Amino acid sequence: MADRKPIETWLTDMDGVLIHEGVPIPGADAFIQRLRESGKPFLVLTNNSIYTQRDLHARLARMGLDVPAEHIWTSALATAKFLDDQRPGGTAYVIGEAGLTTAMHDVGYVLTDTAPDFVVLGETRTYSFEAMTKAVRLINDGARFIATNPDETGPSAEGALPATGAVAALITKATGVEPYFVGKPNPLMMRAGLNAIGAHSEHSAMIGDRMDTDIVSGMEAGMSTFLVLTGLTQASEVERFPYRPTQVVDSIADLVELI
Rank of each mutant, 00 (worst) to 15 (best):
V94W: 09
R125E: 11
T112M: 10
T101P: 01
R54E: 14
H20C: 04
Y93E: 13
A131N: 14
T101D: 02
W10Q: 05
P68F: 11
Y93V: 03
F129R: 11
P26W: 13
G22K: 06
V23Y: 12
A30L: 11
G27S: 13
R34L: 01
H105Q: 12
V120I: 07
S38P: 05
K40D: 01
D117M: 03
H105K: 11
G27T: 05
A61K: 14
Y51F: 13
D55W: 04
R59P: 01
D13R: 08
V110D: 10
D84Q: 14
E8I: 10
V120W: 01
D85Q: 15
Y109D: 07
K81E: 14
G96D: 05
D117I: 02
L18P: 10
H71R: 14
V17C: 13
D13L: 00
L43Q: 04
E123Y: 13
E70V: 09
G89P: 06
L100A: 13
A78S: 15
L43T: 03
T101G: 03
L18S: 11
F31E: 05
I32F: 01
S75T: 09
I50F: 06
S128D: 08
A58D: 15
A28Q: 05
T46E: 08
R54P: 00
Y51G: 00
P68I: 09
T112C: 05
S38G: 14
L83P: 07
A80F: 03
E123W: 13
T102Y: 06
P68T: 08
F31R: 09
D29Y: 00
L111V: 00
P41D: 12
A103W: 00
T9A: 11
P88G: 11
Y51I: 00
P88V: 07
E97D: 14
T91K: 14
I19M: 01
P68C: 07
V136K: 10
I32V: 15
T9E: 08
G89M: 10
L60C: 09
